[in-house]
């Protein structure tokens, strides 16, 4: 009972925070930070997918940026080269990415642990190379310009301000869906697979199937983010989809606290702000800083930064409450 009430309170706080985030652009904030907020939203979509896969299910992916890229290139190529309606292109991209993830999940989830991590790393590299080398379609290393804006009826998403709402609307939908899944029968199955695959099978969980489903879902999230990404920038090149981009997503997930849906916003925001607003001032220290973050967080707070801090706070509060209760 208590847990339920507390759950509702947490829910209310989250909704309130999100409303603040949504309303934020109306302030002075608007002019300066809308673009940053859009990137945070897109990164959150990627990160929450990886959190579901890695944090909850315990399956490492070091090639997640590849799915982001597949969505991006599908949208770019279909809407620019073939004049397909951008929304339809986005849908086709998501479906294709999902189908691709589905097909490769069969061989790839025969692997576990270190092998799986290496295989996803290799897969990410392969796809990145294809983006670069299939120049006739993708524009090669130079990329493609002049990708159309998204529009609905007569309404064109031609300003960052409009796209801000589009991105965060979809992002919130993804977060809510993820949250609902995590708290469901399927979510328990995913966490059970993380806990012990043998035990999960023993209670009748088809671990191969659940891994496949969550892999496909996270790939589709990434693909949708990729589509929005190119319709925002109106440009696509291979650079944001390589190995380091995949590592970035891992960094965000680690900072967000791997097994935490809402932590994904925290992780994406923290790293995005760090890289766009702080690290740019200091030249190119980004790799050093990300490497350090990964090592330090995983050594001292293996459950991830956001969750680790949350648990630390809960412990402190408990101690405080106990002291209050004593006469």
């Amino acid at each position: 009972m208590l847990a339920k009430v507390r759950g509702r309170a947490a829910y209310a706080v989250i909704v309130l925070l999100l409303l603040l985030v949504m309303l934020a652009p109306f302030e002075w904030f608007l002019a300066r930070y809308t673009t940053l907020m859009i990137f945070i939203g897109l990164n959150t979509m990627l990160t929450v997918g990886l959190c579901l896969l890695m944090g909850y299910t315990g399956q490492v992916s070091l090639g997640h940026a590849a799915f982001f890229g597949i969505g991006a290139y599908f949208s770019a190529i279909l809407s620019k080269t073939y004049d397909v309606n951008p929304w339809l292109a986005m849908g086709i991209g998501a479906a294709a990415t999902g189908a691709f993830a589905y097909v490769i999940s069969y061989p790839i989830f025969r692997l576990r642990g270190n092998y799986l991590a290496m295989a996803t790393l290799g897969l990410g590299l392969i796809i990145y190379i294809l983006f670069r080398e299939l120049g006739d379609y993708t524009g090669g290393p130079d990329g493609m310009y002049g990708i159309p804006y998204l529009s609905a009826g007569g309404f064109v998403f031609d300003t960052p301000f409009k796209r801000y709402f589009l991105v965060w609307g979809l992002c919130l939908a993804m977060l809510l869906i993820s949250q609902n899944i995590v708290r469901s029968r399927s979510g328990r199955a995913l966490r059970a697979i993380h806990g012990s695959e043998a035990a999960a099978e023993s209670v009748g969980i088809n671990s191969a199937q659940f891994k496949m489903k969550i892999f496909v879902l996270s790939a589709v999230y990434a693909s949708l983010a990729g589509s929005l990404f190119v319709h925002h920038l109106r440009f696509v090149g291979p650079q944001p989809f390589g190995f380091l981009a995949s590592v970035m997503v891992v960094v965000m997930a680690v900072v967000g606290g791997l097994a935490s849906v809402w932590g994904a916003i925290f992780g994406a925001a923290a790293i995005r702000i760090l890289s766009d607003k702080v690290l740019l001032e200091f030249g190119e220290l980004d790799l050093i800083v990300y490497g350090l973050i990964l090592m330090v967080v995983m050594i001292f707070l293996p459950q991830g930064l956001f969750v680790g801090l949350k648990e630390g706070y809960a412990r402190l509060r408990l101690r405080y409450v106990r002291r209050e209760a004593e006469p």
């Binding site: 328990r188 966490r191 806990g195 097994a259």
Partner: peptide
């Protein structure tokens, strides 16, 4: 249904 010699509970729940 079965149990395991080495328990194998889900530690994350």
């Amino acid at each position: 249904a079965r149990t395991f010699q080495n328990v194998l509970l889900f530690g994350n729940m």
